[in-house]
């Protein structure tokens, strides 16, 4: 896939980092402000897609990237499942039990397990959408050769 012009590349360099930081902010503050794992994950994937579209990439690099994103996706969904199981094993014998201390309302570290769920679901959503996009791009590249 060919990249775009120099102006687009420079602008993307400036913007992509901020988009990534905004995604992380939305994920971490998911239990205090609008947002959460699903919204932040999609924004994270959007920053990667922006970079790939602007800079372009060769076929081998994209394959490597896809292997990594598939791995992250599976690990994240497994971690969500383990966190849900931890309520069954450690807490009060209820699946999806929020057994950690709640803290005070409105603090960044509060709400027990909810921030952890947010973070791992965010990683899962970001990796999933990135994998779909990479699969489509690789398919088009393969067909061109």
């Amino acid at each position: 896939m060919k990249g775009m012009t120099t102006i687009v590349k420079k602008t993307t360099q400036l913007i992509a980092g901020m988009v990534f930081m905004y995604g992380i902010y939305v994920i971490i503050h998911g239990h205090l402000t609008p947002g959460g794992g699903f919204a932040g994950g999609v924004i994270l994937a959007g920053s990667f897609i922006l970079l790939i579209l602007a800079f372009g990439s060769d076929f081998v690099k994209l394959m490597k990237e896809e292997t990594g994103s598939t791995l992250y996706e599976n690990l994240a969904i497994l971690t969500v499942l383990l966190l849900a199981l931890s309520g069954l094993l450690l807490g009060t014998r209820i699946f999806f039990m929020n057994w950690m201390p709640k803290g005070t309302l409105g603090q960044l570290i509060s709400a027990g397990m909810l921030p952890l769920y947010n973070i791992f679901v965010g990683i899962e959503v970001a990796a999933s959408i990135l994998t779909i996009f990479l699969a489509l791009v690789i398919f088009k590249e393969e067909m061109k050769e």
């Binding site: 998911g30 239990h31 205090l32 402000t33 609008p34 947002g35 959460g36 929020n98 709640k102 803290g103 309302l105 409105g106 509060s110 709400a111 027990g112 909810l114 947010n118």
Partner: peptide, 8 residues
């Protein structure tokens, strides 16, 4: 839940 965002 301890969460300020009710949707979460």
């Amino acid at each position: 839940t301890g969460s300020a965002n009710l949707v979460t």
